[in-house]
Design a protein around this nucleic acid. Structure first.
Length: 570
DNA sequence: GCCGTTTTCGGCCCGACTGTTTTCAGTCG
C-alpha cells in the first residue's frame, strides 16, 4: 500500500510550506489530507483506479492530482520543486520542541544557520541574543529542546502504560477522597502506543490530590505541582500528568483531554456552524453554558450519539454518530475464550492445568493451547510424537476439569517454502490450528504473500496468527499484500488473528477494520506465555474496538457450542 | 488547498503558556 508513503510526502510538504511561510490554511489542508490518507483502510491505488480519490474527505482536485502523479511516476513535482528551495537541516530544526517555523526562519535568514548543530553552536556563542524576540530564557529553552530531541522521548506500548496507570489510580484512590478519576488522552482511546500519560480527576481538593500524586513512591522527578495540574516522571522515564477539574466541567474536560486532536477539531467545526462553541470548560451558546458536566452533553448538544473513546480518531465516526449509526463495539465481557495460549510444553512457563485454571478465573468457557511446532527448536517446538501426547493429556484434563474446556491446538509454523510444519494427519487431530510465520521476514512481498495464501488454503488451518509479524518496539512488518490476504481469508473462511500480546497488536486497528469490511472473521488471541499475560485480551479487544468491530465479527465471542460448529475438526 | 441547508468566494478550532513585550507573537496540545 502506498498510503503511508503518500501521507508522509504530504506531511513533509506541509512542513516545507510552513517554513516558506505559506498560507496557514493551505498547510493545514495538506496536514489534514496526510492524516486521513494514513488512516485510510482502503488501498489508495485502488481508489485512484476507481476514480474515487475525490470522495476522500480533505482531498480536492489539487491533492488528487498529486496523488495520481505519485502513483504514476513515483514522485510529486511540486514537492521536488519546493524541497530544493530550502536547506534540508531546517526541517530537522523544526522538530526541536519549542522551535517553530518562525524561529527557524528567523535564525536562518539573520544568521545563516541551517542545521541543529549550527544552531547549538550559535546559541552558545551568544549570536542569537540580539535577534528580535530573543532573550536569555529563549536561548536556554532552545538548548533544552535540543537535548530533549537527542533523548528522543519515545512512545511506550499501551500494554506498558496500562499497568502504570492502574497502579497510580489505585494509589490515589486509596489515600485521598476524589470524585472520579479516569485516564484521558491516547490511553483512554487505547492507542497502541502512548506518549505522555494523562489522568483526569473531577472533584476534590486539587492541591491535596496533587500533593498525594507527587509523593507516590514511583515518582522520580516532579516537573510541576500546582492546584489544578501536577506533572511527574515515574520509573522508566515516563511522564504522567494529573489534572483536577471541578465536577461542573468534568465532561467537557474529559472530552477535551481524550482527543484525538483531529476528532476535537471536527467537533468544534460542527459546533461553530451551529452557533455554539466547545472548549475544555463546556459547550456554550453565546455566553451561556449549555453543557459540560457529563461527556454525553457535549455530543448531545451537537445532536450526536456519544462516541466511544476508541473511535475518536476522525475516521468517519462523527458522521455515523450524527445518523445514529455507530457500531455496537465488542466488549471485553463478550469474549468467551482465548484462542492462542502457550504452555510449558514449548516456550510458555505454566502447565496446561495452570493455564486452564487461570482462564476459568477470567470467566472463559474455553482456552486453546497452541504450542509451537517441531521446526521452532529455539522455542521448544513439539515433535509429532510430543504433540500427540499433548493432545492426550488435554483430553484427560478435560475429563477432570469442569466449567472450562481446553482445546487442543498448535501454532504451526509456516515454513520458508509455504508448507506447514506438521502433516495433515496431525493437524486433523487438533481442535484448533493456528498457523504463523516465524522466519524469512525479509522475503519479497510476492513470496511472503504466497506462503500465507497457501497456509490459508489448507482446510485444517483455522486461524492465521500475527499476520504481519511486526513488533511494535523492534521490528517492522514483513511485506505482505494484505488486500490479497484478506480476500483469500474471506473466501476460505479462515480467521485472521488480532494478536493481543502487548508488543504485537497484529493485525492493528486499521487492518482489522479493513479485513472485517471484506468479510473476514477475526480472532483475538493473547499469545500468552504465562497466565499473568491473559489480561492482554483487554489490549486485543481495544484493537478490535478501534477497528470498529462488533461481537459478530469475532470468532472467540462464540459460545463453545457455536465455536465447535465453526471449527470443522473439533 | 478544501469546502458549502448560512457560502462556488471567503471562510477555515480553541485556549493556555511563555517570554518577550508595553499590547503581543510564537508554540503547543
Amino acid at each position: 500500500m502506498k498510503n503511508k508513503e503518500i501521507a508522509e510526502l504530504f506531511e513533509r510538504m506541509a512542513d516545507i510550506l510552513q517554513l516558506k511561510e505559506e498560507n496557514a490554511f493551505k498547510i493545514n489542508a495538506y496536514r489534514k489530507a496526510s492524516r486521513i490518507i494514513r488512516d485510510l483502510s482502503q488501498n489508495i491505488e485502488q481508489l485512484s483506479q476507481a476514480g474515487t480519490l475525490r470522495d476522500i474527505p480533505g482531498v480536492g482536485e489539487g491533492i488528487a492530482k498529486k496523488i495520481r502523479e505519485y502513483l504514476e511516476t513515483g514522485r510529486i513535482s511540486k514537492y521536488e520543486q519546493i524541497r530544493q528551495s530550502l536547506p534540508e537541516g531546517l526541517l530537522e530544526m523544526m522538530t526541536i520542541p519549542g522551535m517553530g517555523p518562525k524561529t527557524v526562519v528567523l535564525v536562518h535568514k539573520a544568521l545563516g544557520i541551517s542545521s541543529v548543530a549550527q544552531l547549538e553552536k550559535g546559541v552558545k556563542q551568544g549570536r542569537l541574543r540580539d535577534l528580535p524576540g530573543m532573550g536569555p530564557k529563549k536561548e536556554e529553552n532552545i538548548l533544552r529542546g535540543i537535548a530533549l530531541l537527542r533523548q528522543s522521548a519515545k512512545r511506550i506500548p499501551l500494554g506498558v502504560a496500562i499497568p502504570i496507570v492502574d497502579e497510580i489510580v489505585e494509589q490515589i484512590k486509596g489515600r485521598i477522597k476524589v470524585g472520579t478519576i479516569l485516564p484521558a488522552g491516547s490511553l483512554r482511546r487505547m492507542k497502541e502506543t502512548i506518549g505522555d500519560i494523562d489522568i483526569l480527576v473531577a472533584g476534590g481538593d486539587g492541591r491535596r490530590i496533587i500533593g498525594v500524586f507527587t509523593k507516590m513512591p514511583q515518582v522520580q522527578e516532579i516537573l510541576a505541582a500546582g492546584a489544578t495540574k501536577g506533572s511527574v516522571i515515574v520509573h522508566g522515564g515516563i511522564q504522567v500528568d494529573l489534572r483536577v477539574v471541578p465536577q461542573a466541567s468534568h465532561g467537557a474536560a474529559l472530552q477535551y483531554f481524550t482527543g484525538s486532536k483531529a476528532h476535537n477539531i471536527h467537533l468544534r467545526e460542527i459546533a461553530k456552524a451551529k452557533g455554539m462553541k466547545i472548549s475544555e470548560y463546556g459547550v456554550f451558546r453565546g455566553k451561556r453554558k449549555i453543557g459540560g458536566r457529563k461527556e454525553e452533553e457535549i455530543y448531545a448538544a451537537l445532536s450526536l450519539d456519544w462516541i466511544p473513546p476508541e473511535m475518536r480518531e476522525d475516521r468517519g465516526e462523527i458522521a455515523l454518530a450524527a445518523r445514529g449509526k455507530l457500531p455496537r463495539l465488542v466488549r471485553e465481557k463478550e469474549i468467551r475464550g482465548d484462542l492462542h495460549v502457550h504452555s510449558n510444553w514449548s516456550d510458555g512457563s505454566d502447565t496446561i492445568e495452570q493455564v486452564a485454571l487461570a482462564a476459568r478465573e477470567r470467566g472463559y468457557q474455553y482456552v486453546a493451547i497452541c504450542d509451537h511446532s517441531q521446526s521452532l527448536k529455539f522455542a521448544g517446538g513439539l515433535s509429532e510424537k510430543r504433540i500427540l501426547k499433548q493432545i492426550e493429556e488435554i483430553h484427560q484434563l478435560n475429563e477432570k476439569l469442569s466449567t472450562i474446556t481446553l482445546l487442543a491446538g498448535t501454532e504451526v509454523d509456516i515454513k520458508i517454502d509455504g508448507t506447514l510444519d506438521f502433516p495433515d494427519e496431525i493437524l486433523e487431530k487438533l481442535d484448533v490450528v493456528v498457523a504463523a510465520i516465524h522466519s524469512g521476514f525479509k522475503q519479497p512481498e510476492e513470496q511472503i504473500t504466497r506462503r500465507l495464501l497457501s497456509a490459508l488454503q489448507n482446510p485444517h488451518v483455522d486461524i492465521l496468527a500475527h499476520p504481519t509479524g511486526r513488533l511494535i518496539s523492534s521490528r517492522p512488518p514483513y511485506r505482505v499484500n494484505l488486500e490479497k490476504l484478506f480476500a483469500k481469508a474471506a473466501q476460505t473462511g479462515t480467521a485472521l488473528e488480532i494478536n493481543a500480546y502487548y508488543d504485537r497488536l497484529d493485525l492493528n486497528d486499521i487492518q482489522c477494520r479493513r479485513a472485517a469490511e471484506m468479510g473476514v472473521k477475526l480472532s483475538i488471541g493473547t499469545d500468552a506465555h504465562h497466565s499473568d499475560q491473559l489480561w492482554m485480551m483487554r489490549l486485543g479487544v481495544a484493537v478490535a474496538r478501534r477497528g470498529w468491530l462488533e461481537k459478530g465479527n469475532l470468532l472467540n465471542t462464540l459460545s463453545l457450542q457455536k465455536l465447535r460448529r465453526y471449527l470443522p475438526n473439533s
